[in-house]
Structure formats: structure tokens, C-alpha cells
Amino acid sequence: MSRATGTRLQRGLLLAATATVAAGSLSGCFTERQNEGAKLYATHCASCHGDQGQGLQRLIPPVAASDYVAQRRADLPCLIRKGMKGPLVVNGIGYNQVMPGHEDLTDSQITNLLNFLQTNWGNRNQTYTIREVSDLLGRCNGSDGQ
């Protein structure tokens, strides 16, 4: 094998190794965030809305198969950030409890949480982008730009 061929081979192997390491690093980043929405739901929402989004009888509304989740898309980011007080109707049933806000969540975390809700437990709704959530949070002065 000529010296030039050997050098090209070494460069090719180096590039392949670098690409493999980079792909492994990227997949690690995405893997850690892959289930973030489910984890955030378990931490911040499940104690009230139930571990399967079923709600609590006529006290706390369900988020599973929820017409409210489907129809109030533009309101959901601010509802999570700021909370809610007052009556609402979900799947034809009236509720009137206080929902605490989650000021501690970043825009990105709210996006992941909402996307989890939009695509689980019978909800088959369009997912959000971070930009969309940040813009919607701007309506309630709730965007942190993260």
C-alpha cells in the first residue's frame, strides 16, 4: 500500500470514529430528554390529574382524552405556567378548583410536558414547538426564553 493510500485510509478511519463518537454523544443528549414530558407530568401533575391523566372524579378534570386539551391549545402554556382559578368544563363536566402554576418550569420543559399530554392517553393532537410555546407564554408574561 502506498503512503498516500495509507494516509487516506487513516483519515477515513479517524472521520468514521469521530462520527461514531459524535452520534453517540448526540443520541445521549436526546435520550435524556426523550421522556422528559412523562417525567415532568409524573412530578408536577400526576398527584392531582392522576397517573394516567384520569383526573379525580368531579373534583379535578382529566387530561386523558380531554376535549379541553384539544380545544384550548393556545391557553395551555399559560395555564401550566400561571395556574388557574375558576370554573371550566372538560368533557361536559364542570370543575371549579384551583390549579397551581409552575413558574419553576422552563419554556422547553413546558413544551415537552404539553407534547406528552398532546400525544398520550387518547389525545391525538398536534405537538408544540418551543418557539410556539414561548410566543404563547408571552401573552401572560410567562416566557423565560429557555
Rank of each mutant, 00 (worst) to 15 (best):
Y128S: 11
D75V: 01
R124I: 08
P87S: 05
Q97T: 02
T111H: 02
D107N: 05
N125E: 15
Q118V: 10
N115A: 12
D75L: 02
R81C: 05
E132Q: 13
N125F: 14
W121Q: 15
D104G: 15
Y95K: 07
E103S: 06
M84G: 12
D75A: 00
N96D: 15
S108F: 11
D104V: 08
T111Q: 06
K82C: 11
Q118G: 09
R124H: 14
N125L: 15
N120F: 00
N115S: 14
T119F: 09
T119A: 13
H102Q: 05
L113M: 06
N123I: 14
G94E: 12
D135K: 01
H102K: 03
Q109K: 01
R124G: 14
R124N: 15
T106H: 00
N123F: 15
T119P: 04
L105P: 15
T111K: 01
E103H: 03
N120D: 12
Y95R: 06
V89F: 03
N123H: 15
I130S: 01
I80Y: 00
G94C: 06
R131M: 03
N96W: 08
E132R: 03
N125P: 01
Y128N: 12
Q109L: 04
G138Q: 10
Q109W: 05
N96V: 01
G94R: 09
D75H: 00
M84R: 07
V89S: 10
E103K: 02
G122E: 09
G94K: 06
V98A: 13
H102N: 05
R131Q: 11
M99A: 11
D75Q: 13
T129Y: 07
Q118K: 10
L113K: 07
Y95H: 07
G94D: 11
G101V: 11
N115W: 04
R81W: 05
